[in-house]
């Protein structure tokens, strides 16, 4: 009697489960085939648009920032535990050329080793003063504002400068340095 009842219940249950699982679980096969074919087209389109984007990106850079005057500034962080960056301001020859307020996502990207292209512009050959102001929170969550200055000698080649926020572990303080890439 008990076995019969269990079987009866199981039959009801399996019938119900069949309804919930069979109707819900099977991915539509027709769409899967259509999607597979379309994926190939999309893959090829992505490739073509990437190539076009690359070509036009280089063209735009060549037009707007010719090699002999091109000047770029990058920013990287290697002291996330000592300094949490809020914003940065960049001045060249006492003129503000870039201001950036960081989102949480951008900060995470910097902390994980990413390098931000902060500014790209044109500078004539010769000496120029570059000043960067950083605001954020230093050790013990204190508000922090620091600046760093460098005089660069722009040549007729494209020039790349990296602003680096590093940590001085002995002083437990962040340090702001500038590296000119050769």
């Amino acid at each position: 009697m008990r076995v019969k009842r269990i079987k009866q219940t199981l039959l009801f249950m399996l019938a119900s489960l069949w309804l919930t699982t069979v109707f819900a679980a099977n991915p539509p096969a027709k769409e899967a085939v259509q999607q597979k074919n379309l994926n190939k087209k999309i893959e090829s389109l992505k490739e073509e648009v990437l190539q076009l984007n690359r070509d036009l990106f280089i063209l735009e850079e060549d037009l707007l920032f010719p090699a002999n005057t091109q000047f770029s500034v990058f920013l990287s962080v290697d002291a996330a535990q000592l300094f949490s960056l809020d914003s940065v301001q960049l001045r060249i020859d006492d003129k503000v050329v870039a201001n950036h307020l960081y989102t949480e996502r951008e900060l995470q990207a910097l902390k994980r080793g990413g390098v931000q292209r902060l500014y790209i512009g044109n500078l004539p050959s010769g000496k120029h003063e570059l000043v960067a102001f950083f605001t954020g929170q230093g050790p013990s969550q204190r508000d922090y504002r620091r600046g760093t200055t460098i005089v660069i000698d722009k040549t007729t080649e494209p020039q790349f400068v990296e602003l680096k926020i590093t940590g001085n572990t002995t002083k437990e303080q962040p340090e702001f340095t500038v590296k000119v890439w050769e």
């Binding site: 990437l50 990207a109 994980r112 990413g114 390098v115 931000q116 292209r117 790349f160």
Partner: peptide
């Protein structure tokens, strides 16, 4: 193990970590 010896590599990582795949590839 990320060590940035090339700025393009660093910039690509910066874009990638923000899910900007198109820009990182570019």
């Amino acid at each position: 193990e990320v060590v940035v010896k090339d700025l393009s590599y660093g910039v690509a990582l910066y874009n990638f970590y923000q899910d900007k795949y198109f820009s990182a590839i570019n």
